[in-house]
Amino acid sequence: MNLTLHVWRQAGPDDAGAFETYRAEDISDSMSFLDMLDLVNEDLTRKGKEPIAFEHDCREGICGSCGMMINGVAHGPERLITACQLHMRSFKDGDEIWIEPFRATAFPVMRDLVVDRNSFDRVIQAGGYISVRTGSAQDANATPIPKRDADRAFDAAACIGCGACVAACPNASAMLFTAAKVAHLSYLPQGQAERLERALGMASQHDAEGFGNCTNHGACQEACPKGISVDYIARLNRDVLKGTLNKAVGTPD
């Protein structure tokens, strides 16, 4: 198939940026979307032009590098996959495809489709862990954890930190990302000691990074390649509220 691509090109963070149009020719069904971009890039390079910068690494939907907007949708038209898992059989001959970076104040564009997502790391730094020093752990089977809790923790822990939730959200909120980590650790007995502190710390860092508020659109869940549920956001809000109250009135002994 032959396609027309409109790709966001931006030389650097301070550049205005604009769409440029390229042809992608002889594209086969079995190619992945990123294989297709590779091909376009090879062609651009041979013409002495700079190829389109985009992030990718694992190419199997797990590292969270490859976020981009494809026809206005984070990670493209298919549900529950990342851009690297999208295959060209989802498109047809003659299609026009618009490709843009994830856009959010807290994700500044660095070049073309590459954005800076280190705000996510700083949200994790604000409490997204269990404070356990190496070597100080008890035997792994000392505390049985009901399978249901372990499974729930896993579902939340599946987040790959891609940022699609932010890109899809009309408020550019990262509450789904933040809530997923808070939920993962709060379903586990090991995570209880720091539970409320964690929720408070991460939520306040979330706001400090310039992510927007959650107004319950649910666009994040739609866009999330790992099917992270918006229910975690309610759970996060409860913990934040509890933490705030505890702080205000002091914890009863």
């Binding site: 269990i130 356990v132 190496t134 070597g135 792994a140 089977n141 049985p144 896993f154």
Partner: peptide, 22 residues
């Protein structure tokens, strides 16, 4: 042996049996 202890303490959600053990 220590690795599994360490990972579980960090909250790594390894698969578990119904009885709650790994």
């Amino acid at each position: 042996l220590n690795i599994i202890d360490q990972a579980v303490a960090q909250g790594v959600p390894f698969a578990r049996e119904y009885g709650g053990l790994l």
